[in-house]
Simulated scan of single mutants.
Amino acid sequence: MSDRVAVLTGGARGLGLAIARLLAARGHRLLLVDRDPGVTGTAAGLAESGHEVTALVADLTRADDIARVRDHAARSFGAVDVLVNNAGITRDARLAKMSTDDFAAVLDVNLLAPMRLTEALGPLFRDGAAVVNVSSRAALGNFGQTNYVASKSGLIGFTRGLALAWAPKVRVNAVAPGLVDSAMSRAMPEDVLSGLVDRIPAGRIGEPDDIARAVAFLASDDASYVTGQVLFVCGGRSVAP
Rank of each mutant, 00 (worst) to 15 (best):
G11T: 10
G11A: 15
G11Y: 04
R13I: 03
L17M: 07
A18W: 12
I19N: 01
L23W: 10
A24H: 04
A25V: 00
H28K: 03
R29D: 06
R29G: 09
L30W: 03
L31M: 14
V33T: 07
D34R: 09
P37A: 11
G38V: 08
G41A: 13
A43F: 03
G45M: 04
H51C: 01
E52C: 04
V53F: 13
V53H: 13
T54H: 10
A55G: 06
A55I: 02
V57K: 02
A58Q: 08
R62I: 03
D64A: 15
D65Y: 10
A67R: 15
R68D: 07
R68Q: 12
A73E: 09
A73G: 03
L83R: 08
V84I: 13
N85L: 04
N85I: 04
N86M: 06
T90A: 13
D92T: 10
D92H: 10
A93N: 15
A93K: 12
R94T: 06
L95P: 00
A96I: 13
M98H: 08
M98Q: 15
S99L: 06
S99I: 03
T100S: 09
T100E: 14
D101T: 14
D102I: 02
F103S: 07
F103W: 14
A105F: 00
V106Y: 08
D108N: 14
D108C: 02
N110E: 06
A113N: 05
R116W: 02
R116C: 01
E119F: 02
E119L: 10
L121E: 01
F125Y: 15
F125S: 05
A130W: 02
A130Y: 04
V131R: 00
V134Q: 05
V134S: 11
S136P: 11
S136R: 14
A138N: 15
L140P: 05
G141R: 13
Q145M: 10
T146G: 11
T146R: 00
Y148V: 11
Y148R: 06
G157C: 04
R160D: 01
G161A: 14
L162S: 04
A163G: 05
L164E: 01
A165I: 00
P168Y: 07
V170A: 08
R171M: 10
V175I: 14
A176M: 07
A176L: 06
G178R: 01
V180N: 05
A183T: 14
A187L: 03
M188W: 15
E190R: 15
D191F: 08
G195W: 12
D198T: 14
I200A: 10
P201K: 09
R204S: 13
R204V: 10
I205P: 11
E207H: 11
D209Y: 00
I211Q: 08
I211C: 05
A212R: 07
V215N: 10
A216K: 02
A216M: 05
L218S: 07
L218R: 01
L218W: 01
A219G: 09
D221Y: 04
D221C: 08
A223C: 12
V226H: 07
V230F: 09
L231P: 04
V233G: 03
V233L: 05
V233N: 11
R237P: 00
R237F: 14
R237N: 04
A240V: 07
A240M: 13
P241L: 12
